[in-house]
Design a protein around this nucleic acid. Sequence first.
DNA 1: CAACTAAAATAACAAGTGTTATAGAAGGAC
DNA 2: GTCCTTCTATAACACTTGTTATTTTAGTTG
Lengths: 191, 191
Amino acid sequence: MARKEMITIDRILDTAFAMTREEGFANVTARKVAAKAGCSTQPIFRVYKNMEELWDAVYERAAAYFLDYYSLYPRTGKTPFANLGMAYIAFAREERHLFELLFVSGDQGSKHKTKSMYEILNGDAGNVVYEINLARVAGCPDPGDLFMKMWIFIHGAACMSLTGDYDLTDLQTMQLLEHSYYAFYNETMRG
Amino acid sequence: MARKEMITIDRILDTAFAMTREEGFANVTARKVAAKAGCSTQPIFRVYKNMEELWDAVYERAAAYFLDYYSLYPRTGKTPFANLGMAYIAFAREERHLFELLFVSGDQGSKHKTKSMYEILNGDAGNVVYEINLARVAGCPDPGDLFMKMWIFIHGAACMSLTGDYDLTDLQTMQLLEHSYYAFYNETMRG
DNA sequence: CAACTAAAATAACAAGTGTTATAGAAGGAC
DNA sequence: GTCCTTCTATAACACTTGTTATTTTAGTTG
């Protein structure tokens, strides 16, 4: 045949994904990825038709990474909501650029394909909502309403941690989530 | 003296602010502002030292605009929390680019000065927290905790509306906020 | 009207972007 | 070894960004 392939598609995607984690999605440009991967920009356009294709791949990888992160996060809470919240908030804190890409920046004016929050949560590699549906057995009359309220709350805390307006310890966060769950749950049972 | 000033600093700031509202902060570039204002880029750099100064001014104006928006929003709820929530969520829906600029995009890597959420809420033109502190008279033992929980919840709903993951009517939102308030309040009184 | 001065327009620079054309290099086939 | 294919690097194009130098314009002053 011909010359051996030196720069693989994996190496490029790995580099672009690592850059997204460390520097943010906006820094994933052709030249910067090439520099980080130790090559010119040419191998990128050999394996990807254009940058948008690479950006889509990074986005998909970020979504899969989140589901991995969630599935591996230790379940120390009393309720699945608290466990989801702990993982979600920790992800926002530890992987702020990935969180921003997946759950904050809208599809408006973005140059890559996007999914809705629920599409990400119900990806191929895992189903977050399934675990949450265990709350159904608790005899809650409107688990959908409870899920929505808890999800809004969890999302709010996670987004606040991005801007530095939320800075609680894990223990405090756990207590906050448990209290909020019982607050919503009892209010649902009452009304 | 000399030639009459045609393009004033107000005209430039008005244009830049209008562009932020309609197209988003990222589109406030020297050439685009000039085109929208019907002039060249030169008048911009006459009244502003550089673009960062203009961006700072736009940010300040956005913060003031939010306080105006909040103070003028009709108070139809039973609690100040519900009123704050309605205004905040409506602002996120109707002025998504301003909301993004003020409350979502962090100070990380932004080319303009930023304030924290609470600095904006306690600006010169208004004090949101003051109104909320009326909740103190209700005999709540820990109003700070209640405020934090409600604020996280409100912020979560607003951020979700940005990404299209929250789409309730005003009436539904009002009920959601009232229910959440009572849920948190009762839980606080119990525990 | 002529002259001066400040404002605005034009054009340019340097840096950055995605993308592509061209040239070079490396390994297999013969 | 020579050829030939394919991968990589270099360089360039077209565009956008902030910023600045230069030139033109217009209004005031004398």
